[in-house]
């Protein structure tokens, strides 16, 4: 019985996760500049991939595999923000301008440690 419930749940998680991946891709395509695109890639992308890895943990029924799926998820959560942060910093320091819609810009390039 529990196997059946878990399999339905895993299928649901799979659909949800791939939907988040699709939305991240749509965001990458539609958003106006580098910094806003980074939001879509780092949040929706991480979420989608994380949900799919969680779905594996629900269908595996094997401690080692569940642990490995969770380890992959945690690794993803640790690396995604670092990558986004590095890219945003590199883009800003090399003078890639944010979109004209930007309403506040308190970031001063002189105060940053290059």
């Amino acid at each position: 019985m529990i196997v059946t419930i878990f399999q339905y749940f895993a299928g649901f998680l799979m659909l949800l996760g791939s939907a988040f991946c699709l939305l991240a891709a749509v965001g990458i395509l539609r958003l106006p500049d580098i910094y806003t695109r980074m939001h879509a890639a780092s949040k929706a992308g991480t979420m989608g991939t994380g949900l799919l890895l969680t779905a594996i943990a629900f269908v595996a029924f094997d401690g080692a595999i569940i642990l490995r799926a969770i380890a992959a998820f945690v690794f993803l959560l640790l690396t995604a923000p670092v990558a986004a942060h590095l890219l945003a910093r590199a883009a800003f320091l090399t003078g890639h301008k944010p979109t004209e819609m930007t309403i506040i810009n308190e970031l001063d390039i002189k105060k940053l440690d290059k």
């Binding site: 799979m14 991240a24 990458i28």
Partner: peptide
């Protein structure tokens, strides 16, 4: 170039997602 790198980053995530679906 940063735009392309972000897109490549997302491409890796989608690749991982593909593998996860293949696993299941």
């Amino acid at each position: 170039l940063p735009d392309r790198v972000i897109a490549l980053d997302l491409l890796v995530y989608i690749g991982i997602s593909y593998i996860a679906v293949v696993v299941i």
